[in-house]
Nucleic acid binder design. Structure first.
Length: 515
RNA sequence: GGCGGGGUAGCUCAGUUGGUGAGAGCGCAGGAUUCAUAACCCUGAGGUCGCGGGUUCAAAUCCCGCCCCCGCUACCA
């Protein structure tokens, strides 16, 4: 039994969760559930990144203390995780007490390694924004003053800061990419990271004195850890670091992240860990964004959609299926109500739902028990052959972090089973050769059983219903039990529809209100 | 500007050691069927494979030039 520690990025709760958060959570949940069903020892971590200047500012605007503010904002993320059936083992918050301990332990290790030093951080600072901006972000006015992207004036300011000797790690990182080309996926992201590192690395400012909403730097009053040392350390916290036994989970097998934070996970994070003398995660996968009508969602564009609303409208499992199936994981994808409805109707209602319904209702009419298996002919052998090779295809897709390909393979069997039933026409055989009709229904039901088990990670609730309809015991719903064939004579419950068709006529907009 | 990826049927895409007549799903049209959620099954519609050259007996697949799109090019996360 191999262990599998998988994480999402932690989310910054300065707004409501959007479909992108849901996408990453559902995809990672599929990975975790798949590994569990496959008998692996799984730990699945997700959570929120709650420190930093922006949170502090937002809290002040809201008239709340930072802690009270994040307590309120995090609720929506927990609600979303619950509603989308995200089977996390822990929802970590960077304000959790054990996280500060882990982050400080990581810091101390980097300090002990001699990779942290005190210097001055200088940049264009906006007093009104209380933020530094890169020179490229600022604009020089005709009168010689310089403005931040927010339109506020900036001034050159220097601040005492701890620095991390990132420059030391250029070659070790390049070695890592060469030795382990799948450390960053998709491969195009690795290329980008390699190019970035090859340009040379500057040391990184990793503490701040201009605000205090963060993890205190050990032994350095007035400094809080800045940005990514704090955030990235959550993966260690989730493994139990720095306590003994954390090597049960660390290093992580996979960090699932958005393509926008690949650099932090593929450059800074391994550098921090190398400095600290800790093992590196095995793999970082940067997925794409989900766009609506070709535009990235943003609050100002008014096209932010609440994922929970979509789950309510289409059903949790149908929504999960859409997210997993319709986007090649790693690429950007599009969503629309029409696309969701089409996917649900064509694949869940017409193909899978109808296959289950037609098969189970014929069985119900023939006595309501799993029919006799009978003698398999060429058609049955061919169908079973396809069904039996499916697991290995799905495992490949799982290893490649491609839920879309796994579902593609599973639905190929759905199609093959529909074709099998149509060609064998058990409704006709019933009149001439009842035993042959039973044989067809048994094999169709057996294929459905395997399909349902393999679809549990994607659609846990609906597939549990389907497996109920096949009277499969709870302990026979994992991949280890895939070869436990349907047993003839077992009484089955009355079939019920699983995936009703969705109306596509007048898609109402499901839009969030500004928070 | 530099580096990297991509432009294939209405839509989303698959298709590189160059070679049977260029594919899948969705959508559309027709047919068949009636077990089933007006579902399943069959058939079809034909797209200059971004543009222009070149190599070759033969190129979507190799080479050159051009056009367009996207990603990365460090401290907002």
């Amino acid at each position: 039994m191999t262990r599998y520690y998988v994480t999402t990025a932690i989310n910054y709760p300065n707004g409501a969760p959007h479909i992108g958060h849901a996408y990453e959570a559902v995809a990672t949940d599929w990975l975790a559930r798949f590994a569990r069903a496959d008998g692996r020892d799984v730990r699945f971590l997700t959570g929120t990144d709650e420190h930093g200047l922006k949170i502090a500012q937002a809290a002040r605007t809201a008239g709340l203390a930072p802690r009270a503010y994040v307590d309120r904002m995090v609720e929506a993320f927990v609600t979303m995780a619950d509603r989308l059936a995200i089977s996390r083992d822990r929802f970590i918050r960077t304000t959790d007490p054990d996280h500060a301990r882990a982050a400080q332990a990581l810091w101390q290790r980097m300090a002990d390694a001699g990779d942290l030093y005190l210097d001055r951080y200088a940049g264009w600072y906006s007093v009104r924004d209380e933020a530094f901006y890169g020179e490229g972000e600022t604009t020089l006015q005709a009168d010689g003053t310089r403005l931040a992207p927010t339109g506020t004036p900036v001034a050159w300011l220097e601040e005492e800061s701890w620095f991390f000797r990132l420059s030391r790690f250029q070659q070790p990182l390049l070695d890592l990419y060469a030795r382990q080309p799948d450390f960053v996926q998709p491969a195009s992201r690795l290329n980008e990271m390699r190019a970035f590192v090859e340009m040379g690395l500057r040391d990184l400012s990793v503490s701040r004195t201009s605000f205090d909403w963060g993890v205190p730097v050990p032994g350095s009053p007035g400094h809080v850890m800045y940005v990514w040392v704090d955030a990235l350390a959550n993966y260690l916290t989730g493994a139990g670091f720095p306590d003994a036994g954390c090597d049960r989970w660390w290093p992580a097998d996979l960090h699932v992240i958005g393509k926008d934070v690949v650099r932090f996970h593929a450059v800074y994070w391994p550098a921090f860990l190398m400095s600290a003398g800790l093992p590196l995660p095995r793999r970082v996968f940067g997925h794409g964004f989900i766009l609506n009508r070709g535009e990235k969602m943003s609050k100002s564009a008014g096209n932010v959609v609440e994922p929970v609303a979509l789950a309510d409208r289409y059903g949790v499992d149908s929504f999960r299926y859409f997210l997993l199936r319709s986007i090649a994981f790693g690429q950007d994808g599009e969503w629309s109500h029409e696309a969701i409805a089409t996917r649900i109707n064509a694949e869940l209602a017409n193909d899978l739902g109808n296959l289950a319904q037609r098969t189970l209702s014929m069985i119900a009419r023939a006595g309501g028990r799993v029919p006799a298996r009978g003698e398999a002919g060429p058609a049955e052998m061919a169908l079973m052959e396809k069904a039996q090779t499916l697991l290995s295809h799905c495992r490949e897709a799982h290893a490649a972090v491609r839920p879309d390909l796994a579902l593609d393979a599973i639905f190929a069997l759905v199609a093959a089973t529909n074709l099998y039933v149509s060609e064998r026409a058990p409704w006709s055989l019933r009149k001439t050769d009842p035993a042959a009709a039973d044989t067809v229904l048994w094999h169709a039901a057996e294929a459905i059983r395997r399909i349902a088990i393999l679809l549990v990670p994607a659609m846990p609730e609906r597939m549990a219903r389907l497996l109920d309809l096949l009277a499969i015991p709870e302990d026979r719903r994992n991949f280890i039990a895939l070869d436990c064939e349907l047993r003839s004579g077992v009484e089955l419950p009355s079939p019920v529809g699983l995936f009703p068709r969705v109306e596509t006529d007048q898609p109402e907009r499901v839009t969030s209100q500004p928070v």
